[in-house]
Design a binder for these strands. Structure first.
Length: 595
RNA sequence: GGGGGGGUGGCGCAAUUGGUUAGCGCACCGGACUGUCGAUCCGGUGGUUGCGGGUUCGAGCCCCGUUCCUCCCGCCA
């Protein structure tokens, strides 16, 4: 009688030699020598080599058993001969010599070969996600996600925050993203909505006196996806604090997010406090409100210089409202003509009318637009850019928003193409001082630029006495390596300021009550000043695992068209279900009864 | 809604830019092999090149339509 200890496939070491062990797992790889069979047995914890000798009665069975079948082996842990040690494996100094074997579950040939290094197509991976998740890279991502979420909770608890749950079935909110609607069976013709964020609830918790709230909160938005934005649903580390200033909130995020990045990555992480960049400065210098600060290129404006220049293409555009943004790049004069041509072509594909440039070459300044500029203008540009021999200035001329977008895009492309971006650092920044109002590009009327519930800087006085377009909000974003991690704000907890703000945006008091009655009502009964922030969990994990796509860090993601290919969601429902919900579907996608 | 890229055996890719029988690696099947670890060696099965039409002596490649995936713009307070 042997006594077997059950081990994981990542566990056995040389110290376990000569003991009896039981291992269960998937048959990851087989090496069949006819006279001896090696099996790499895999589970969540690792891989261990199992040796099967031909004298065993299960030898033939195992030799023919397809990969990815699940089996349990028992036998002796044996120290490997020195020349057969596998230094790649933590378990590589030993192997299990199988005495007995039980096939737990024979597999069919899998559509995805689990040890493969090439990426299977997205469709296939999502349809067979349960197999895709067996692959080491994705499996590790999901495990790391779990560990990160645990760490985030521990950090929040350590700072005195408590986690509270908020409803998943709530009411549709008139602002923001499209809602996912859920029809009510009991209330004919009425709908719940899934929360875009627990925004109102966390503010109401502040009114109720829970002064330090957090939640790993699911959020639902019916908007189109991007590589860093999963369709339908995502998770936020939702945070709200009473009596907090903007600096207090920043300190919490710098601690929690900073610690998390330091713990789960070997990359260099900015120490607190992180750089703060006013919104308008970010648009000017980086062409974006989510700048990648690893990229050394910093844009600047040279509208005035070109307005007075003899370069009519720009001068005329400037007369009708265009601006000129310069993109300075160090030491690329030796790039071939094709480099500049291709960049110009790229600029056109993203909507630029052209891409002028100047090359500082020794004593001369060359380039297609050089002949239109006077020597003193070139000197002035060189001074503005700090341009020296070898440097190049690219120019984008367009309406302000377009010029910023295009120049920002080219800045990013140059950063990537020229290898200017250090892959081994995380660069954080706060984007602050968002404008409270903006003009609607279509109607020209004043409207909220971002979040109507944030506190205007300067309070009621600013609302009464300042030009609305000059008013800034206590509103901020956290950006890391060009990815927006989080938005937040100090909230407007005073009804009279809220009413005034909505009045400027053209809404009467009644509208505020109608749309946001619950919040305003709650604020009437004594509301603490409060503010918060909500770093995106998926995006943090994405950055920490160096993934280009957010699907890589979500166990069961939907595809770009918001379909779950594995579960076949969304799906048609029966007529009975629809009848109960008082819903009639136009068109043909209705399943007949009893299906 | 718009723009870019893509769809070739089960999987990942190629096809000298319109030219012979559509190749390669992995997986799979059969055989050999007692120390491999992405085992190796020998042999084999498997393709209506997403779908429909067109141009041509000839189409995986060109044209038109359509569909699916992906990236981006719009959108995401």
């Amino acid at each position: 009688m042997h006594t077997f200890r059950t081990h994981t496939c990542g566990q056995l070491r040389s110290s376990d030699a000569a003991t009896q062990a039981r291992l269960s797992g998937w048959i990851f790889r087989k090496r069949d020598h006819g006279g001896i069979l090696f099996i790499d047995l895999r589970d969540h914890y690792g891989v261990t080599q199992v040796v099967v000798h031909p004298s065993r009665d299960f030898f033939e069975t195992i030799a023919k058993l397809p990969l990815e079948s699940v089996a349990t082996f028992t036998g002796e842990v044996v120290l490997r001969a020195p020349e057969t040690i596998n230094p790649e494996l933590p378990t590589g100094e030993v192997e299990l010599v199988a005495d007995a074997c039980l096939v737990e579950s024979a597999a069919e040939a899998t559509p995805i070969y689990i040890p493969c290094e090439e990426e299977p197509s997205e469709d296939l991976r999502l349809t067979y996600r349960f197999l895709d998740l067996r692959r080491e890279r994705v499996h590790k991502n999901i495990l790391l996600r779990s560990q990160i979420i645990r760490f985030l909770r521990e950090e929040m608890w350590a700072l005195g925050f408590n986690e509270y749950q908020t409803p998943i079935l709530t009411c549709s909110s008139p602002e923001g993203a499209r809602d996912y609607l859920v029809p009510s069976r009991v209330h004919h013709g009425k709908f719940y909505a899934l929360p875009q964020a627990p925004q109102l609830f966390k503010q109401l918790l502040m009114v109720s006196g829970f002064d330090k709230y957090f939640q790993i909160a699911p959020c639902f938005r019916d908007e189109d996806s991007r590589a860093d934005r999963s369709p339908g649903e995502f998770y936020q580390l939702d945070i709200e604090m009473s009596y907090a200033t903007q600096d207090d909130i920043f300190a919490v995020v710098e601690k929690v997010v900073g610690d998390t990045f330091a713990k789960f990555s070997t990359k260099q992480v900015d120490s607190a406090p992180w750089i703060r960049i006013p919104y308008r400065e970010a648009i000017l210098k980086y062409g974006s409100d989510k700048p990648d600060l690893r990229n050394p290129i910093v844009l600047f404006d040279c509208t005035q210089l070109f307005a007075a220049s003899a370069f009519n293409a720009f001068a005329k555009a400037i007369e009708s409202g265009a601006v000129v943004r310069a993109i300075p790049v160090k030491n690329i004069k030796s790039k071939p003509r094709s480099f500049f041509d291709k960049l110009g072509q790229y600029a056109q594909t993203i909507g630029a009318k052209g891409l002028g440039y100047l090359v500082w070459d020794g004593e001369n300044v060359k380039g297609p637009i050089a002949k239109f500029l006077k020597p003193e203008e070139l000197v002035q540009l060189a001074r503005m850019a700090g341009a020296e021999d070898g440097d190049v200035l690219f120019f984008v001329c367009d309406k302000p928003a377009e010029a910023a977008r295009i120049a920002g895009d080219i800045r990013i492309k140059l950063g990537k193409d020229l290898g200017l971006i250090d892959p081994n650092v995380f660069k954080f920044c706060w984007i602050v001082d968002f404008p409270f109002f903006e003009t609607d590009p279509e109607t020209g009327a004043v409207c909220f630029s971002h979040n109507p519930f944030s506190m205007p800087q300067g309070g009621p006085d600013a609302l009464l006495n300042q030009n609305p377009l000059d008013i800034l909000a206590y509103q901020y974003d956290v950006v890391c390596n060009g990815i927006e991690l989080s938005s937040g704000a100090i909230r407007n907890h005073r009804p009279e300021i809220l009413f005034k703000a909505f009045e400027i945006a053209g809404y009467p008091k009644e509208t505020v009550y109608e749309k946001f009655g619950c919040l305003v009502n709650a604020f009437k009964y004594g509301a603490p000043p409060h503010g918060g922030v909500a770093p995106g969990v998926d995006r943090m994990v994405m950055l920490l695992t160096d993934q280009e796509n957010i699907r890589e860090v979500i166990a069961f993601p939907m595809n770009q068209k918001a379909q779950d290919l594995m579960m076949n969601a969304p799906s048609e429902v029966t007529e009975k279900q629809l009848r109960e919900l008082h819903i009639q579907v136009r068109g043909k996608n209705v399943v007949k009864p009893n299906q």
